[in-house]
Design a protein around this nucleic acid. Structure first.
Lengths: 240, 240
DNA sequence: ACCTGAACACCGTTCAAGT
DNA sequence: ACCTGAACACCGTTCAAGT
């Protein structure tokens, strides 16, 4: 059983959907039938979903809860999205705009990739339930995602990567990033072998000796190590 | 809306739980009350879950469906597992026994890691819904998982890895493996930028030029590339 | 201890009716 | 076109009753 998520931190309520000054602050309910001005739109739904997630986590993101935040009936959402999966895609694309690609074109390729990778991992470590969604998401209808790939691709191209190696290299880095995002969420004692410790001497010794002398979170140590290997290994593909 | 999953292909029914010769082949139903011999146990539940998943996928793995396969009421399952999550852990641990660790102690460290990594990825590419479960799974109650880590740890140790680097190196490889498992399930056209292609010239060009000349699945190309980088980068940590 | 059967508190989604 | 409200077909899980 999960402990209850912290209750409503001091944070402004979600802004009403697109310029809706007629937001229903009071308690009076809308009567049935089409309202004179639409009360929902995709960007409002996305903002409400993000607020809900930050407050209650992904278990709290239900169509009913989303509707409550937006002050509509759950069925009203289906005029704007086809499914809950659709809502997740909206959120996912928004998060991609938070990934830091500013290093590309600024400093060295190595520094740019490191900055990008760390921020990419950090964003999705807070949103691991979206990772299975991303893996299957066609970028077609995800403009922010596409914008990120464009910047990164250009960065790789300018750094001298052969064109046909760019996508595989990015995919390899992303795979490592997504896996590492999960790792951040792992409990501290995940490698505690408990009563079986006697039958796993090498593993137990390895766990003990890494636990002592890490300067940050274990997930950061592993990420840093793997990222270093990938950056130098992939960097060797450059022709200039 | 999802299309209906293919109906019951010709395939033998799941074997009854542990040596139960009194499997209820016929249609007569058990009457309420404790049966003289238990009809359920963990290994039977695991086997039934695996069969269900292979036939219907993870959307088909419900407590009700599992109970139907085992010919019990859904509530009976809760005498043996605490939750559905528990069932997933049983399945997960079983799958770990399928990962090929035979290379450790046989050939070079590089070959052993490559064999291990490819088989690890292949196993979980078919079971991606378990990946979020693994990330949080304490190894304590997962004997097969623990056995795998022991073999791999010993392999790293024998290959000359400093003790405190072994766990971070394994975690980095696993992160890459899990992320890459998702990648296998991605649709072919995941990078089709569609109507936005004009505004993403570098990315579009990169996608086009990698698409042409791959000798296997795109996911394999990226995995091979990233694995090579990790193996050589991490291998450099060895002291002997 | 370990089963059945009924019940509970949810889910996401559909659809007629209303404006 | 875009809302409400009722309904549907599920979920996982709990618990009393039975042996």
């Amino acid at each position: 059983m999960l402990e209850t998520i912290n209750e409503r931190p001091a944070m402004p309520a979600v802004p009403a959907a697109t310029g809706s000054i007629t937001s229903n602050g009071g308690a009076q309910k809308r009567r049935a039938g089409r309202p004179s001005a639409a009360v929902l739109d995709k960007s409002g739904i996305t903002a409400a979903a993000l607020e809900l997630v930050s407050r209650k986590g992904y278990e709290g993101l239900t169509m009913a809860a989303l509707a409550r935040v937006l002050d509509v009936a759950p069925s009203a959402l289906y005029n704007h999205v086809a499914s809950k999966q659709d809502v997740l895609l909206l959120v996912e694309d928004h998060l991609m705009s938070l990934v830091d690609v500013s290093g590309f074109g600024a400093g060295s390729w190595e520094d740019a990739v490191r900055t990008w990778a760390w921020s990419y991992r950090d964003v999705f470590a807070e949103h691991t339930p979206l990772i299975p969604v991303i893996a299957v998401l066609p970028v077609t209808d995800a403009p922010q995602t596409l914008a990120m790939y464009e910047t990164v691709s250009k960065g790789f191209s300018d750094a001298g990567f052969p064109r046909e190696r760019i996508v595989p290299a990015i995919v390899a880095l992303e795979s490592f990033i997504f896996g590492s995002a999960y790792d951040v969420t792992a409990p501290e004692d995940i490698f505690e072998s408990g009563s079986m410790a006697d039958s796993t001497p090498h593993f137990t010794a390895a766990v003990r000796s890494s636990a002592g002398q890490e300067r940050g979170r274990p997930a950061d140590t592993a990420f840093s190590l793997g990222l270093g290997a990938l950056v130098s290994g992939l960097g060797a593909l450059r022709t200039t």
